[in-house]
Design a binder for these strands. Structure first.
Lengths: 232, 232
DNA sequence: GCTTCTGTTATGTCCTACAAAAGGAATTAT
DNA sequence: ATAATTCCTTTTGTAGGACATAACAGAAGC
């Protein structure tokens, strides 16, 4: 494993824009700006850093993409609360990611799925259960193949929502395409994928009567085919 | 909850750089470039898009920051495999994030910690156990306060490493500062934080003799103070 | 006092120019 | 003829200037 890459940081960002970006980030932190504060203007930054306005704009453009700053004409730029997952969204494309990363993310989603139990039992409401039952009822109605993925999303999506954790929910949703991508690939290579013995219906039943440990065991069984695949 | 923001996407990115960035991303995907492929030169892109080279450079600068492209003089630009967590790293600063997001991340880390069990039991080796025992042994030697955080990092860090999932490990490490930040805040407000009844030493013992469910139960007990805090 | 108009100002975009690096081609030496 | 060296070309990186545009501020008019 490449620990070096984590411990040592590549000194001297080659390009000016990189350096300015880093400087700006450091500047924001040091001055302990709070969201809403106004930043110096582009030209002032350029002068202070001794670079052209062009370079400053490249760096600002990056921060703007990450949602760290918001700029409006005349008013100048203001610091904003970044959307931490927004940047991930841009990069999380199954077609671009390497094989190892894809595998890592596949596993990561399994981990997240297994971790659902505690938060769900902390916050589930009777209405949630009803909603889940509705979703499950729709599943059995049309058991055709092409709809399976939709039902997976609906059911598991509802589970994430029940955690009341928005970041968690969005994160899971983002990971889904990668998950499916890997799944499709595996199926294509190793033949049809088995489905776990514990169904969505079973999981809802557990939610109604069992405790969080029961639920986790149920989820483990539900995901068993995926875990088995990891062993191979 | 703001579902709109997830379902509907803000049409027409206001600035040209935003549009070009989006177009470039779409272009890369449509042409199904693979890492190593060369991209058109800046001027060609500018001409094709009907914008100035400056705007193109801003967009490219963003992709470069995300690690999606790598540019070398003369050679042009080549597509690379992005470092998905690199972008997260830039934004994940406790001082900038909002209160809700901080809370979400705190919970997310608990979830990830609870999900450790399955991967660990899939891949743990006798050497790993030995390493853990060494770490635990060093803990009892100096039980002073200031070192507690270091030991937390050492112990849990080793656990992540045992999963063999690099992305998972890095992700956890990135979440750590936020976790500590929230923890410090809570302690400051609500007084001293309790420590779980199950210690690191106990967890190692479980790893040696118990199964993954035992370990998860142990971890739950280890983290119990944190989970209790969520209820309040 | 309220609306409207105008001017100022900072960002957004374009253009041109040039330095530097990195291939490629041409040239020279063995 | 092949290998090494030098020169040239090309493409990115950076600089600086120019102007459009939007948004705010203050003045003018009702």
């Amino acid at each position: 494993m490449n620990d070096l890459k984590n411990d040592i940081q590549p000194l001297g960002a080659s390009t000016m824009a990189d350096m300015v970006e880093s400087r700006l980030r450091e500047y924001l932190k040091r001055k302990s700006f709070v969201p809403g504060d106004a930043l110096p203007k582009e030209q002032e930054l350029a002068d202070a850093l001794g670079v052209s306005r062009n370079v400053v704009r490249e760096a600002l453009s990056r921060l703007r993409m990450l949602g760290m700053i918001d700029t409006r004409k005349k008013r100048g730029m203001v610091l904003t609360q970044p959307d931490i997952l927004g940047s991930l969204e841009r990069v999380l494309d199954p077609l671009i990611l390497g094989k190892n990363t894809l595998k890592d993310i596949f596993e990561l989603r399994l981990v997240l799925e297994m971790g659902l139990a505690d938060l769900i039992y902390l916050r589930k409401t009777p209405e949630d259960i009803t909603a889940l039952e509705t979703i499950v009822a729709q599943e059995v109605n049309k058991q055709q193949k092409p709809f399976r993925v939709e039902h997976e999303i609906a059911f598991h999506g509802k589970l994430y929502q029940m955690t009341g954790n928005d970041t968690y929910m969005r994160f899971q949703k983002m990971l889904l395409p990668v998950f499916e991508y890997v799944l499709d690939y595996e199926i294509q290579v190793n033949g049809q994928a088995d489905v776990g013995k514990v169904t969505h219906h079973d999981l809802v039943e557990i939610l109604k009567t069992g405790d969080s440990e029961d639920f986790r065991r149920g989820m483990k069984a539900h995901l068993k085919p995926h875990f088995d695949r990891l062993k191979a």
